[in-house]
Simulated assay, not measured.
Amino acid sequence: MSSVIAGLPLEKPPPENVEVTLGDVMLWGVLPYVVIAVLVLGSVWRYRYDQFGWTTRSSQLYEARILRIASPLFHFGILAVIVGHVVGLLIPRSWTEGVGISDSAYHAMALSIGIIAGIGTLVGIVLLIYRRRTTGPVFMATTKNDKLMYVVLLGALLAGLATTMISVFDENVTAYRETVSPWFRSIFIFQPDIVAMTAASLSFKIHTLWGLALFAIWPFTRLVHAFTAPLHYLFRPYIVYRSRGKRPVPGAQPARPGWAPVGTPDRDRRGLPRQ
């Protein structure tokens, strides 16, 4: 019988005998490296030949009321989502168990934080899309790349939220920490664990493919600005705009505002000819 979290079943271990097809090899053994190549080379090309386009193309000038709410929701939410993916994909189960975090506690924490971050990010991007569609100047500044980016990004978010919910309520879902996570880590040592990813449930595979599509279009959309986030602003020194200077002497006559006359060789400061 599977373990439970508040009465809900956890993911089950992957099956032992997994049949790997040619399609699995192409999807989980070849496609990730194609996406990485497009991401790296596309970013280098964009930086060298389109530096003026390496920007978010901010539209705050056209509309700020909705943006003031939607932008923080989306950006802080997506940061939490990224941190959650890093923890879930890069940190093995043995490490969390080694520091005393049980499997049930890990899933409960991942579920609560993941749903909150996912919903916050989803609300933020929906508001951004609504603002872009209903604000005339913002919509006119929307490019085809922007529309494609919003579709893929929204699809990845919806697939992630659906995967999280399905993994909790469906006891037939395989454990992603034994399938998707080992496959993801194996990519970076150039030994892709195709068997592990093949054993993953369909919801995880769909979410992974949406994620790969998002990274494939990343260099050619406004998302590329994330690679040059101004993190140095957090550590830069204060900027002095005006020096304090000398303090005025008590009782002294204040300086007269305006331009001070400097005089000329043949005239004094009052404009009269010199004697």
Score class of each variant (00 low, 15 high):
Phe169Cys: 10
Val44Trp: 04
Arg242Tyr: 14
Trp183His: 06
Pro265Trp: 04
Val123Gln: 11
Ser104Met: 15
Glu11Met: 10
Ala199Gly: 05
Leu27Tyr: 01
Trp95Leu: 14
Val38Asp: 03
Ala64Gln: 13
Tyr150Val: 11
Phe215Lys: 05
Val138Gln: 07
Arg236Leu: 12
Gly84Lys: 07
Arg269Cys: 08
Ser59Val: 11
Gly258Ser: 03
Met140Ser: 13
Leu89Ala: 05
Pro273Gly: 02
Leu231Lys: 13
Met197Gln: 07
Asp266Ser: 07
Arg242Ile: 15
Leu231His: 10
Glu11Arg: 09
Met140Asp: 15
Ala199Arg: 00
Arg57Pro: 00
Leu90Lys: 14
Tyr176Thr: 07
Ser186Asp: 08
Lys246Cys: 08
Asp193Thr: 00
Gly263His: 06
Val99Ile: 13
Gln253Val: 15
Leu79Ile: 14
Trp218Cys: 04
Val168Ile: 09
Asp170Ser: 06
Leu212Gly: 04
Pro92Thr: 08
Ser59Gly: 10
Val25Gly: 02
Gly251Ile: 11
Leu22Asn: 14
Leu8Lys: 09
Tyr233His: 12
Met1Leu: 12
Arg46Gly: 07
Gln60Gly: 13
Glu11Asn: 06
Leu223Trp: 01
Gly118Arg: 00
Ile78Tyr: 02
Met1Pro: 06
Gly120Gln: 07
Tyr49Thr: 13
Tyr47Asn: 14
Ile82Asp: 02
Gly53Lys: 11
Pro237Asn: 10
Leu73Arg: 04
Gly98His: 06
Arg274Met: 07
Arg185Glu: 12
Leu214Gly: 07
Asn172Arg: 09
Arg46Ala: 14
Lys147Met: 15
Tyr176Asn: 05
Pro14Arg: 02
Tyr47Arg: 14
Val240Pro: 08
Ile113Ala: 14
Gly258Thr: 05
Ala80Leu: 12
Leu231Arg: 12
Pro230Arg: 11
Phe74Tyr: 13
Gly7Arg: 01
Ala175Glu: 05
His207Asp: 12
Val44Cys: 08
Ser2Glu: 15
Val25Pro: 01
